[in-house]
Design a protein around this nucleic acid. Sequence first.
DNA 1: TTGTAGGCGTTATCAC
DNA 2: GTGATAACGCCTACAA
Lengths: 333, 333
Amino acid sequence: MNIYEIAELAGVSIATVSRVMNDSPLVSEKTKKKVRDVIAQNEYTPNVFARGLGLNSMETVGLICPDVADNYMAVAVARLERSLRECGYNCFLRCTGRDHDGCRKELRELLQKRIDAVVLIGSSYADDDPDSEKVEYIRQAASQIPVFMLNGYVRGSNIYCALCNDYESSYSAVSEMIASGRKKPLLLMNARTYSANQKRKGCEEALKDAGLPVEESRILYISGGVEAVTNHLLREQHPDIDAVFAANDILAIGALKYAEKLGLRVPEDLCILGYNNSQFALCTNPELSSIDSRVDRLCDIIVDTLQLRMKDQPVSSQVYAKGSLIRRGTTDF
Amino acid sequence: MNIYEIAELAGVSIATVSRVMNDSPLVSEKTKKKVRDVIAQNEYTPNVFARGLGLNSMETVGLICPDVADNYMAVAVARLERSLRECGYNCFLRCTGRDHDGCRKELRELLQKRIDAVVLIGSSYADDDPDSEKVEYIRQAASQIPVFMLNGYVRGSNIYCALCNDYESSYSAVSEMIASGRKKPLLLMNARTYSANQKRKGCEEALKDAGLPVEESRILYISGGVEAVTNHLLREQHPDIDAVFAANDILAIGALKYAEKLGLRVPEDLCILGYNNSQFALCTNPELSSIDSRVDRLCDIIVDTLQLRMKDQPVSSQVYAKGSLIRRGTTDF
DNA sequence: TTGTAGGCGTTATCAC
DNA sequence: GTGATAACGCCTACAA
């Protein structure tokens, strides 16, 4: 069933049918009703390809993330997809792995699919330096369609970033930690992304401002799951620490298991703070204190910004959400 | 840059350019090279809408799931997207919520987007009865495009299901549990889906075959997160149980926390078995024993089936994967 | 081996 | 208000 058949049945021209479909005010109510009845009776829906060809858009948005199996991104994808659908966009999903090459490739391919906008999820795609040459391909994509970054920061026109204030959140949490008497926190990091580096800087600054030393030996980069973290810590030969600040909850749980193996009391002997406030935080005993990085809020910001941007209304290129400390059983401050 | 411009620059007709793009054997190598050079120099890529209009396909697959934020579905979506992309399909993602109405609506909309196939993820969409009228809309969709179901079962032509043998896996696990001396297992269920009902039947049959009673009071349906489960159990006034069989890991962790609150030793006083072998299972202490429902395998089966089906090759409408018991710290059998 | 021309189903721009 | 008709950019018989 196409527009010609509907026109035939309704006794009008295809132009009129098209106008009715797009609710043009130029059609008389009488004609509209007549055409709508025929459309409804035949369950006619316009061909998206023909529509796309004419308008050069199918109202799609690309969602690019390293890995949806990761809880942080899954939560983000779920919320973004839902909200975007509510404002009429269909989402193409692409999982790229963590490297820039994967992202570059998928971004290029999605651009060929004529997506109307793209959301880059997670900080993996942003270099520590927002002006880095490494992310030039993102700027280039932005010359064609608006690019939105969830918790990543790349400077450039037509690039819009929604971020958690990881620096401030980390600074403030570690400051509280220190104020409560901890002197030797271990920093557990998983990557050297923009977001991760902000967290690290926040921690280091908090230490400095409290007059405590920043020991390189108490900054660990560990990749892998819970077990990898625990094993790594066990190999470290009982590092001299009294607290753990982890860049995500999985790292924190690895530390918690380390404490269990060593018979350390948590939080008395070792206090542990995670990041992201994921579902994992509720699975442990004691339950994990964690900094909520406000993914939901960031998603909402992105969808709002996107809608405005699509209507060519002015939007800010950078918006921050405040992380918040969720206190549970692994900390006592 | 369109096919006409390329034809112009290469000094051939658009038909020849089209043939080169589609690697037709009817073009001389010399012409191919000439055209390819022009294509490369101009970074020409065909317009997907025009292509779609002519071929009535953009090589897209719909991925419909209740909620990607759920770990089980996230893992499935991640793997499906990756594999489908490798064989040339782009994925539209839709999160619908758990009810049939949501699925019906999204399915209808995706059909209008002219997707080439659809994958329904999770057992929420399948009724207990594979011939149920409730899922008639799925059969109707299958009259237009092939429908693939991940761990759900609906009977109908052009519907292809990949399932974990939940009945057998549950039967076998509970039988082992009983053989090890447990006599009063609690069944923790989250829903009344096809898959959940299979698990329940497996458990009940194992009890019967061991000459043990099936007590209705030891079958609980609980929705919500870990905390909801724990609270529900605490309200139940210390039910008389010595084991827990949970339909997913979150339920099992809820039970584990219940045991902790009551000071029960796990697994000695209460053994606990989860289902899905998710990442959550590694977060607890002791770590959670769980039945691996083989999502990865099911995804692979679906992608293989889909590829064959698209080539009009014969495929079976139902394939099972064997679940496997992963023994960790919460069980002793 | 290559070119011509018609078709795919819309939207948009003209006339009337 | 409504109707013809020309794009939109590709694929593919069919002709040469």
